[in-house]
C-alpha cells in the first residue's frame, strides 16, 4: 500500500493536495479572561506554514489558554472571554466567515491526556471526525491506514482494528488520538503537552511523528520538556506570567536562537532550568 499518494479526501476537487494544505496561523493582540480576570495579555505570534512552533514557559502562564484560543476551544469554558484576532491563512477564525465547527476541523487538537472514544473501535475512532461532520470518504480503509501510518501506529494495530480504542496502551492511545486528528486533514495541528502522560519510548515515537507530519500540517506544541522543544520545533515562543500579572510572550524566534542566544536573560534562565 502506497502512502499519501492515494489520499481519499484530496480527490475531491475543492481540496488542495496535502503538501500544500498546511496553513499559516497568525495571532494578533490576543487577550484572554476567565471570569473577568485577565490571564493572557496582548500575545502576538506568527506560526508559519509547515513549521513546528513550540510554546514553552512555566505552568500557569497561559500557554494552554493561548492554544485553545487558536481553535476556538476557549469559548467553551463558561465565563471565558477573549480579544484580538487569529488568522488562518488570512481568514479570521473568529469572524463570521467560519463557523466554530469549521475552524476546529481545520485546526485540529491533541490533548494532554489520551482520550480515544471508549465505545468505538480503533477503526471507528480514526474515522470519528469525518463521521461527526458528515464528510463522506471514497475509501475509508485507505484513509484509516494512511492516518494510522502517519501517526506511527499502523503496524501495531493493523490486525486489531475492530478492537476498542481503550484496549491500547497509553502511548498507543495518544497516537490513535493523533491519527484521529489527522484523519480530518487539518491544516494546523495543536498539541497540548501530548507526551506529558507518556513514557520515554512513546514520547520518542510521537516526536518522530511530529517531525514527519510537519510537511503537510503546521504544528503548534505546548511542552514543559525543554529537550523536546529543542528536538522537534523550528520556532519557539517563551511565555511568562509574574505574580498577579497575566501571561505574556517574553520572546519568540528560531528555536536554536532561543536556546543558545536569547535576548532576554529570563529566557536563558528558563531554558537552562534555573527557574520555573
Amino acid at each position: 500500500m502506497t502512502l499519501a499518494t492515494t489520499d481519499p479526501i484530496a480527490r475531491t476537487p475543492e481540496r488542495e493536495a496535502p503538501a500544500h494544505r498546511a496553513a499559516e496561523l497568525v495571532a494578533t493582540g490576543v487577550c484572554a479572561w476567565f471570569g473577568g480576570r485577565l490571564v493572557l495579555d496582548d500575545v502576538t505570534l506568527s506560526m508559519p506554514r509547515s513549521m513546528v512552533t513550540a510554546l514553552i514557559g512555566p505552568s500557569g502562564c497561559g500557554k494552554s489558554t493561548f492554544l485553545r484560543i487558536l481553535n476556538r476551544m476557549h469559548e467553551l469554558v463558561p465565563g471565558a472571554q477573549l480579544a484580538g484576532s487569529v488568522e488562518l491563512d488570512g481568514v479570521d477564525v473568529y469572524s463570521g466567515r467560519l463557523r466554530a465547527t469549521d475552524a476546529r476541523r481545520q485546526i485540529g487538537m491533541v490533548f494532554q491526556k489520551p482520550n480515544p472514544f471508549p465505545a468505538m473501535s480503533i477503526y471507528d475512532n480514526v474515522l470519528s471526525g469525518l463521521k461527526f461532520s458528515h464528510i463522506s470518504v471514497d475509501d475509508r480503509d485507505d484513509l484509516v491506514e494512511m492516518s494510522l501510518t502517519k501517526a506511527g501506529l499502523w503496524n501495531e494495530v493493523k490486525n486489531r482494528l475492530r478492537e476498542l480504542g481503550g484496549a491500547l496502551s497509553g502511548g498507543q492511545q495518544q497516537r490513535l488520538c493523533i491519527a484521529r486528528a489527522l484523519a480530518v486533514q487539518p491544516r494546523v495541528l495543536l498539541m497540548d503537552e501530548p507526551c506529558s502522560a507518556l513514557d520515554p519510548t512513546s514520547t520518542a515515537r510521537i516526536e518522530q511523528t511530529i517531525t514527519e507530519i510537519a510537511d503537510e500540517v503546521t504544528v503548534v506544541i505546548v511542552t514543559h520538556n525543554m529537550q523536546q522543544a529543542q528536538r522537534v520545533s523550528h520556532l519557539c515562543a517563551f511565555f511568562l506570567a509574574s505574580e498577579n500579572e497575566p501571561g505574556r510572550i517574553v520572546e519568540s524566534g528560531p528555536t536554536d536562537v532561543i536556546f543558545s542566544d536569547p535576548h532576554d536573560p529570563r529566557t536563558l534562565d528558563y531554558v537552562h532550568g534555573r527557574f520555573g
Partner: peptide
C-alpha cells in the same frame, strides 16, 4: 476529555 476531543474534531 471525550467531549473536548469530539468538539476539537469539528463536531457540533
Amino acid at each position: 476529555g471525550l467531549r473536548e476531543a469530539s468538539l476539537a474534531l469539528g463536531s457540533s
